[in-house]
Simulated scan of single mutants.
Amino acid sequence: MNQLSGIRLTFYGYRSILCFLLLSFSMVTHARTADPLPSWNSGPVKTAIVKFVKETTQKGGRHFIAPAKRIAVFDNDGTLWSEQPLYVQLAFALDRVKALSPRHPEWKDTEPFKSVLDGDLKAVMAGGERALLELVMASHAGMTTEEFAQIVKDWLAEAKHPKHNRRYTELVYQPMLELLAYLRGKGFKMYILSGGGIEFMRPWTEKVYGIPPEQVIGSSIKTKFEFQGGKPVLMRLPEVDFIDDKDGKPVAINKFIGHRPIAAFGNSDGDLQMLQWTTAGDGPRFGLLVHHTDDKRETAYDRQSSIGRLDKALDEAGQKGWTVVDMKKDWKRIFPLKKP
């Protein structure tokens, strides 16, 4: 074999290897991008989501929406992560009351604190919104915003769900994580719009959902600027500032976002007004409700539940043409296999 033939053979060999690598890379890339929602079963729900995203992001299309107006809002509890048998933030408040009880001996004889310390959750819930608000005020105030954020992070690092025995941040819904990633990749800007506390969510939403603190909207208590040891701080006060639930959600959208979203995702009657406001706008709109129907892999509940009740919104979904996720039917997997 002469030198020229050797060079040609080497060239063709390298070219074959290069072609093989490119083909392999193409096949892998195609496999990764072919289905943006792999944890969603094929059917009307998945089809509706993909159709809406394609129509609103295809340049030159009749329903194209500019990236600046591709705003989607998501409820958190029951929509992005588990909310049964009780809201995660309520579980946090109960644990905080127990941790703080040595400083408050009077709580042993004062409701609703007595029931918390006795482990009587039924009695706590029987106290209604007033009792729950009192627990939140006692457990969430009296500290700086930085101190509260650290307390939340420390609690989430250790606390586990009573049924699944996993950390709460591991009980986010895998199909919804995929949906967030899908929309993000298509130029959507996502906001969390939750009845839960804004400063309870902000310390972890970016790591878990990819949604930064400035795109988290929630209920809040008042804060006060002051100095401690010559350092400026924000102190959390035991006073309600804003409740981001029900008709408060459209108000929050107008106040904090300034644009009507084109898509809204919820799971309960607390999200009804958010979906009404979003889908009443001009142009293409999308409303989706997560219906908890899977009692085996998660918890089945709707019209009669005291937590995350889905009643009026479920009826209106049929009238307005909103998409309803049947969790048992439409989701291949509920929770991530690994930590998000």
Rank of each mutant, 00 (worst) to 15 (best):
N2S: 11
L4W: 10
F11T: 08
Y12K: 00
M27V: 15
V50K: 12
E55Q: 14
T56N: 01
D75T: 07
W81F: 08
L90I: 15
D95E: 12
K98T: 12
A99T: 13
R103K: 15
E111L: 00
P112C: 09
F113D: 04
D118A: 15
L121A: 10
V124N: 01
A126Y: 04
E129K: 13
R130I: 13
L132F: 10
H140N: 08
G142C: 02
M143A: 12
V152R: 10
K153A: 01
P162F: 12
R166V: 08
T169H: 00
Y173F: 13
M176V: 06
F188P: 10
S194K: 12
S194W: 12
F200I: 12
R202Y: 08
W204E: 04
V208A: 01
V208L: 00
Y209D: 09
E226T: 15
F227M: 15
F227W: 09
M235E: 15
P238E: 06
P238C: 03
V240M: 09
I243D: 03
D247N: 12
G258T: 12
P261W: 15
G266P: 08
N267P: 10
D269W: 13
G270S: 11
D271Y: 03
D271M: 05
L275M: 00
R285H: 05
G287Y: 00
G287F: 01
D295S: 10
Q304N: 13
S305V: 02
I307M: 07
D311L: 06
Q319G: 04
Q319E: 13
W322D: 03
T323N: 01
V325C: 02
K329C: 01
I334N: 07
P336M: 02
K339W: 00
